[in-house]
């Protein structure tokens, strides 16, 4: 494993992290979906790069799944879905954009700090990469918290899974079973999400999940 190969892997995960920030300030649903598609495509490239670097051909399967489903099929399906539901395309942020970005930066710092404090002397570089994966995961959470729109929450969730796949492929020799199952689970999750979106849209005429909050079932007798 030489310097250039590591730098390349670093750059790819760095750009993925950048896309997470891009996701944070999108105000429109199509923008969110596009940014997510780019992040997934970058993940596909990063996984292929790892496949070459580690000499593990099975990782190409993971890369293929990521590119086909997460970078192409799911974004297209989501775009079709929101078109069919003809929902308003603006995302109402619960948290102001500036503050969200600030939180994002804090989370990045946090994940770096956490990972640096656990150095296995032999694998400092791995720890840095794990820190980026963790940052992507945490930013995914931030998206889910800061945006109360069903589609935005789906995107946030899948962005978390991007971070997880990145971490999984960087763990050298981790059996394929995990990556395939993650990819598969995203697919199933999309089906469930889609189902619910139809129902939610059906019942409430909006995808704004804030409208779900008025039935907590704890009203007084």
């Amino acid at each position: 494993m030489n310097g250039f190969e590591n730098d390349m892997a670093h750059t790819l995960s760095g750009v993925m992290l950048l896309m997470s920030f891009l996701l944070l300030y999108q105000r429109r649903i199509p923008g969110l979906i596009h940014a997510f598609a780019i992040q997934a495509a970058l993940l596909g490239i990063a996984v292929s790069w790892q496949a070459v670097m580690q000499g593990e051909p099975h990782l190409f399967i993971t890369a293929l799944i990521v590119l086909l489903f997460k970078a192409a099929f799911i974004p297209i399906a989501l775009l079709k879905l929101i078109q069919r539901l003809s929902v308003p395309q603006a995302v109402e942020p619960v948290m102001a954009i500036g503050r969200t970005m600030l939180f994002g930066i804090i989370l990045c710092g946090l994940s770096l700090a956490v990972m640096q404090s656990s150095p296995q002397a032999s694998a400092l570089i791995v720890n840095e990469k794990l820190a980026m994966a963790l940052a992507i995961v945490l930013l995914g959470f931030l998206i889910m918290i800061a945006r109360q729109n069903a589609v935005a929450q789906v995107i946030g969730f899948m962005s978390i899974e991007n971070g997880l796949v990145l971490a999984a492929v960087e763990a050298k020799g981790m059996p394929l079973i995990v990556e395939i199952s993650v990819a598969f689970s995203v697919l199933v999750a999309l089906a469930v999400f889609g189902l619910f979106m139809f129902h939610i849209k059906d019942r409430f005429d909006t995808l704004d999940t804030a409208s779900l909050e008025n039935v907590r079932g704890e009203e007084l007798p």
Binding site: V137, I160, A168
Partner: peptide, 19 residues
């Protein structure tokens, strides 16, 4: 979300065991 965090924990466990 919970299950995603648990996967990260699982990956870290692998990292600790791999050496």
């Amino acid at each position: 979300v919970g299950i995603a965090l648990a996967l990260f924990g699982t990956i870290l466990l692998y990292f600790a065991a791999e050496p």
